[in-house]
Structures are given as C-alpha cells and as structure tokens.
Design a protein around this nucleic acid. Structure first.
Lengths: 160, 160
DNA sequence: GAATAATATGTAGGCACCTACATATATGCA
DNA sequence: TGCATATATGTAGGTGCCTACATATTATTC
C-alpha cells in the first residue's frame, strides 16, 4: 500500500509529511488514553515551556514553539477549560496574557513525567532506526527558509 | 524562531512533520490561487490516478494513494460538487462506486498540466537541496511499519 | 496632546487527513 | 437456502495546525 505512494517521489512530499505526522500523533493519543489521561497532543509544547520558564505570554510561547499565536491562543483556551493553566491579563501591558500552570496543572505534569520520558525515548529510538530523520527535517526547514516552495514553483512556471 | 523547536530533538518529530506539510500545502494553495483555479490539494492524487487508469473505485484509490477510504470518499464528494468527476454505482457490484473524470474535469486536468509539472520540478529541486528528504521519509515509514510508535512507547514505559 | 503605527491577542473559517461507527451488498458455508 | 462473515462505502466528529480579519492597547512621531 505505502509502496504505491512512493512512485510519486518528491511530488508527494507534502502529503507524506502529513500522513506520517498523523500516524505518530495518533499513536501518542492512544498512549494517553491507555494511561487514563484526557490529553491533547498540542498541549505538550505549551506545558513543557510553562514548566521550564512560566509564566509566559501567548506570543512568547508561539515564538518558542515555532507556531502561530493563533494556535497558542486556541490551545490555551482548551488548557484553561481543562483547568490546567490560567491566562491572566498582564498587569503591565493589558494587551498581553500571562499563562501559568494551575496547581492541578502542575500535578498533572508530574503525573505525566514518566510518560513523557517514555515518549522521548521512543522518539529517539525511532529517529535512530530511521537514520536521523530529524536532521533531514532540519535540512528541509533550512531549504524552505532559504527559498519558499511558492517561489520555487513560480520560477519553474516561468521556465515552462 | 525555528531554532527553538530544534531543541526538542526527536521528541517533536510529529509536530515538525505536520508543520512542514502545512507549509508546503499552503504554498501550493497560493500557486493555484495565483493560477486562477479553485483547487483543493487533496484532489491531486485522485485526479492523477483517474487520468492514468480511471475509472477506479473509492477503495482502489485509497489503496493507490495510501490513505483511508473515508478520505477518498470525502474527496470524491467535493470533486463531484465541483463537476470534475462523476461517481456512479458499479453495474456489477452495487456496493462499489466507479469514479471517473467528467469532460470538464479532463479539461481542467489538461489546463493544470503545466502547473503540475512545475510543482513536480520544484519538489525535486527542494528534495535535492535538502539532500533527499524523501529517502528519510521512506526510512521512517519502514521503521513505523516494522514497529508502531504505540508499541515502542509502551515498551519504554515498561522499562521505567 | 493627537494622530499614526506597531504590537498583542482573539474570532472565524478552512485544511487534509484520521478513527469510530453505521449501512448495504456480496460471498461462503452448512 | 439461510445465515454468518466479509467487503465497499458513507456519516459524524475530531485533530492541530493554518490564514484572513478584527479589536484593543501601547509606542512613536509631530
């Protein structure tokens, strides 16, 4: 089945990246469910950063995680509903929200520590077995940072 | 910004795969928009297969593309609404739908041919510049096929 | 001080998939 | 032939992001 997709070569790179991420996300989801925890994958990065250096603003988290502020904003809303964090207006800048762990949030994080360690180790094992996919992703990131796919495609169109 | 994400190493592989795919998809979307075509990325694989070997059933397309039948089913609905394909009940098996290009669908495909060629070439260029990401994805696919991330994580938990 | 520009975060809608569950049809076996 | 099983496709809801647009606040300039 998967072998059929390989015939497309680089043309299918976007789809293949997505499907791999779906697969890895789904497996993580199953593990949380088996651990008896209601948890959203997108919470991990936010929680990790808040544990390390909280409180942090929406924008700071977005920068640290390499995602848009909108994603962080949406994630913080679900985290608040779950009682894991609070998001209070910054006292020195009313535009800004300071996100920090609640007591029960910190408790959840402690509870999840062994699971996160297992997730980390499994990821390292997978990366090693696949002969350093992460470095390949770094290279892809760098190539896209140098020149967007939009510009590349447009230039190829001009040469047609 | 992106450099911050790299500190997570393999632990962030799922998220990184997803974000790269979003980035590549978004750039393709912009190109279709600039080409003056209303087009959904998910249509490409279906159309490509129908051009090659149509008519095909939902299940056959799913197998060829390496995605679920549900995704194909949903994609075929949007393709039908756009008048690009028809999906008629197979005369020899009433469970099955035969998907094929309409006349205007075939015309759209012809119109898009140069764009698809440009997309292909840009993808090859990107893959070369990133020193063969596709092979890395092949290896990742193979590693996950050998052993799921779910099983890997669970085993790591047992060793804690 | 007022106007303009920059900054922080939010809402709305969309994307391309996924799993769980459901229904209809075809096949195989006793 | 009837029933159990397998197969094909569909509906419903969800995932974790994204862009476009919006609003409020702060900073800068004149």
């Amino acid at each position: 089945m998967k072998d059929h997709v390989r015939k497309y070569g680089p043309a299918a790179i976007g789809g293949r990246l997505r499907r791999l991420s779906e697969s890895i996300d789904e497996d993580a989801r199953r593990i949380y469910a088996e651990f008896g925890v209601s948890f959203e994958q997108r919470w991990v990065g936010v929680l990790y950063e808040l544990v390390q250096d909280g409180p942090l603003s929406v924008g700071e988290l977005a920068a640290r995680l390499g995602i848009t502020h909108v994603s962080v904003s949406q994630t913080r809303q679900s985290l608040e509903r779950a009682g894991i964090i609070t998001a209070e207006v910054d006292s020195s800048d009313a535009r800004r929200r300071q996100l920090k762990l609640t007591v029960s949030g910190a408790k959840l994080v402690r509870q999840l520590k062994p699971l996160w360690q297992a997730l980390d180790r499994a990821a390292v094992e997978l990366n090693n077995e696949a002969q350093d996919v992460i470095s390949a992703l770094d290279r892809l990131d760098d190539a896209l940072a140098r020149r967007s796919q939009f510009d590349r495609i447009r230039d190829q169109l001009k040469q047609t």
